[in-house]
Structure formats: structure tokens, C-alpha cells
Design a binder for these strands. Sequence first.
DNA 1: AAATAAGTCTATCTTTTTTATAGAGTTTAT
DNA 2: ATAAACTCTATAAAAAAGATAGACTTATTT
Lengths: 141, 141
Amino acid sequence: MLSKKTQYAFHALIHLAENQDKGPILISEIAQEKNISIKFLENILLELKNAGILGSKKGKGGGYYLMKPPKEIALAKIIRLLDGAIALLPCVSLNYYERCENCKDEAVCGLHEVMSKVRDASLKILENKTLKDILTRQVTI
Amino acid sequence: MLSKKTQYAFHALIHLAENQDKGPILISEIAQEKNISIKFLENILLELKNAGILGSKKGKGGGYYLMKPPKEIALAKIIRLLDGAIALLPCVSLNYYERCENCKDEAVCGLHEVMSKVRDASLKILENKTLKDILTRQVTI
DNA sequence: AAATAAGTCTATCTTTTTTATAGAGTTTAT
DNA sequence: ATAAACTCTATAAAAAAGATAGACTTATTT
């Protein structure tokens, strides 16, 4: 399960993407719109900024905005940044690998093999789907 | 990421499956073989027993054993039992659903749609792969 | 029947992670 | 100069994860 932090990040990014034309967006606006604690959201947006995903402007008329078009921001990147590994086991993670302490030989461990497949199946989606793909769908009248 | 509890459960189940012919297996044997705290493992095996996955025999010559053949124990079942939801978001979970508090309409939420796909891709593997599939592969000489 | 081996059960405790809050500081528009 | 807004560091509260303790029950063996 993704942490609240990552969940909030997605919702905030969606709001920023859907209001890209309006210049910098206030933290408080996102917090209210998406029902997130403003102070907690502050930390999250800052982390996204430090990772180069968001930009910000200080002072009056300031706020946060996307640094790249939504279609260039992969969901996997956001998850890894805020939650760490996407894989179900450390010994199967591409970006946060740790040796398994309970099995003798990963090369022969059947668990390792199956969990690699789960990771690949998830990554195939999360690496290719972007912020653009999770924007609110327009309902055709 | 799966919790240690679930990871330990998998390793314990693998050991039990690989020694099925030897009658009840001691907790202490599994703990030593798989490098797991014996008292922590005790709790885990008890939970697996209460869920009907394992059986046990008390007293001298006692221990734990599988209640079903390995090929009938799906990995998804173990994960759900010890870790809960397999989905990345509560609003997308089949077994542990919770309404999303940050979006206005799930039917229109693009995040919901993508995360459903991730869930389905993971479940396709985890529901179909069983304990039999994660046993140590025999190396052919 | 006694001794011993083994699982059962409940409670507690520690550590880590997650989630959230506080407040002083800095920047910028007006 | 003032007010609006992000920045930064620290801390705290809550929850979850991980681990341990010990008294209890059951079954085997002698």
C-alpha cells in the first residue's frame, strides 16, 4: 500500500496539472481542494521541488507549479521518491536492493523468481503511465 | 513492500513444504534454518494455523505441518492474511476497500483507473502462483 | 504418574515509520 | 514597509512493525 504521503503527492500533482495555465498555485488551495493537512502538504511539495519535479515562487503571487509537462512525469518516479521500493521484496528491488537474509541462494530461490515477475508487471504500468494519464477524465455529454 | 512477517511466513512455508514427508516440523528447526527469531515465528505460525493453512501437533514429536498440498496455497492468500491489501490504494482494493477521501468521484479519477490495472497485473500472478511455485528449484547436474 | 517436549495464548515492550504540527526565517509584490 | 507566500528545521504524536516473556495446555515416553 502506498503511504499517505505518496497518495497526497499524486492528488496535489493532479491539481497542479489541471491548473497549469493559472500560474503558481497556492499550497493552501491544493490543501483545501484535496482535503489534505496544509502543513503536511507543505513538506511533500518541498520534497517534490527538491527532486526537480516542481518549481516554486516565493512571496505574494507565489506558489507551486510543474517543471515538466505532465506526460513526462512517470508515476514510478513519484512512488520511488516518496515511498522507496516498488517491489514487494528488498531482494527483488531494482532501486533499493538488499540481500535476502532468510534464503541461502537467490539464484535458486523460487520466491525471488515470482516476485521479480510481480515487480516487472507493476513497473510495466507505473513506468509508462504518467501524470497525464491520471488527470480527471472528461465526461462526454 | 511486504512486511517481515509475510516474508518470514513465506520462508517458513517453503521449509514446511520441502519437508512435508518428515511429519511435524519444530518451530525451532524452521527458525534456525531460515534465520528468524523463534518467538516471532511462533506468532506467525499460529496465525497461519488459525487461518487453516497449517496444522499442528502438541507435545513430544509435535510441530507444524501443511494442511493442504503446496499447489493449493496461493501466494495472494498469505499476503492478504498477514499484510492486508495487495492493491496500492485503499480505494482500489478488492478485499480491503476504503473510499478515497481526496478525490470527488472515483468513477472519473484517473489515478483509480491506473491503480486498478496495477492491482490486476499483480493479482494475476499472486492468485495463480502457489507455494509449489516458490519451492527451491532443483539444479540439474 | 512424573518428567519432558512441544505448541498456545496473552500481554507487553521497543523500535521504527508514518503522519502531523510549530514556528522562526526568507523572499517578493505592491 | 507590509503582507503574502514559500523554506527549513525541529519536534511530537500516533500507528505499525518487530520482538520478547512467561504462564499454560497437551501429548509422549519412561
